[in-house]
Amino acid sequence: MTTESYDLYPVARLAAAQEATAAAGLDALLLTPGPDLRYVTGYQALPLERLTCLVLPAEGDAFLMVPRLELPAAEHSPAARLGIEFVAWDETDDPYAAVGARLGAAARVGLADRMWAMQSLRFRDALPGAEQVLAGTVLRGLRMRKSAAEAAALREAGAAIDAVHAQVPGFLKAGRTEREVGRDIAEAIIAAGHETVDFVIVGSGPNGASPHHELSDRVIRAGEPVVVDIGGQMPSGYCSDSTRVYSVGEPPADFLRYYDVLQRAQEAACAAVRPGVPCEAIDAAAREVIAAEGYGEHFIHRTGHGIGLETHEEPYIVAGNAEPLAPGFAFSVEPGVYLPGTHGARIEDIVICTEDGGERVNHRPRELVVV
């Protein structure tokens, strides 16, 4: 089932955000362009020096401050369905002062997590008596628990990035550079239906031991494992992210030993997903397998991160996060083993917590692919 069958940005979300704002003891949320604004309104506004801002008071009517030249775009976005006032401002106006005048004696306001510093400081001047906190503390509970429409969007994103991984063996050849392979992958990501390419990691040989290596002009050699971690954003706004490992010819024996351990660790973590299980327990499920085989010191990052309108968002699958999983939580499960100067490996799927377990949205083989 596709996202066309669902409403990704329902009108009711505005009321839910307003209710959460009041419950958090805030007077208003101030949401500038970015994932918070898009989540609440569906409007993917351009991030400009000119202020676009949804003002969502805990009580009363919300309104959208928008530069007059951006008004047509706002009026043709899903935000137009919300029934809120669009306040267009002109080049000689001070939109921050206008927001301050409307909010009056607000004591606490939530700022979009991705708001630019220059905007937050302008709001501080316009609302000198207001404490500023992150809007994410209010919206996190809503954004973490994906709706049926959001789950469908993530499945579409997963299928699209799986289609790219299916092509990767044809791109990998001894004598090609990581950058050349990465260029082919980026083109395939767009061709598979993504709107943007968010990242392309092609880590060959020793570069595979650097989790965020991305690309270089290093020439891929025969007998080397290659870590390929790729993702992008779909037209829906929802993101893909998946890692698979390939080998150009037969890899070294020491690599095969820990790749088998890694595969078992990733399987154990995915199998542990169900409602009520703490996020940190999923991390522990992967880490215990790796540590028991003597590779614990080489697993140097958390097991996963939430995903949705951002590639990295809450919840984080890491030790110390006791947040219990709930149906609708979506996150990566991506343990890794990295031997500096030698090689490395990571296996990553996006998993959605269901009513009684976990659903993977990525379905490419997790076994090492030898090309």
Rank of each mutant, 00 (worst) to 15 (best):
M1F: 11
T3V: 13
D7E: 13
Y9L: 06
V11S: 12
A12S: 15
L14M: 14
A16R: 13
G25H: 03
L37C: 02
T41E: 05
G42K: 04
Y43L: 14
P47C: 06
E49G: 12
R50Q: 15
L51G: 09
E59A: 15
A62W: 10
V66M: 09
V66A: 09
P67R: 13
E70C: 13
E70W: 10
P72K: 08
W89D: 08
Y96N: 04
G100I: 07
A101I: 11
A101W: 08
L103T: 12
L103A: 10
L103F: 07
R108K: 14
A112R: 08
D113R: 04
R114K: 05
M118H: 14
F123N: 12
R124G: 15
A126F: 08
A126S: 13
L127N: 09
V133C: 02
A135D: 09
G141A: 05
L142V: 09
R145M: 06
A152Y: 06
L154N: 03
A160F: 09
A166W: 00
L172C: 10
L172N: 07
K173T: 10
A174M: 08
G175R: 02
E178I: 07
R179M: 14
E180C: 10
V181S: 08
E187K: 12
A192W: 04
S204D: 13
G208T: 13
A209H: 02
S210N: 11
H212K: 00
E214P: 04
D217E: 14
V219M: 05
R221S: 03
E224F: 01
V226A: 01
V227K: 02
P235D: 04
P235R: 08
G237D: 04
Y238T: 11
D241T: 07
S242F: 05
S247G: 08
E250D: 13
P252A: 12
P252R: 02
A253I: 10
D254V: 15
D254F: 15
F255L: 06
R257V: 06
Y259F: 14
D260Y: 02
D260F: 05
R264W: 00
R264M: 01
A269Y: 07
C279M: 14
C279S: 11
A281L: 05
I282R: 05
G294A: 11
F299V: 02
I300P: 06
G306V: 03
H312V: 15
Y316F: 11
A319V: 09
G320W: 01
N321T: 04
P327Y: 01
V333A: 07
E334L: 02
Y338V: 08
Y338W: 08
T342Y: 12
A345H: 08
E348D: 10
E348T: 04
V351G: 00
E359S: 07
E359L: 15
R360I: 11
R366G: 14
R366H: 11
V371S: 10
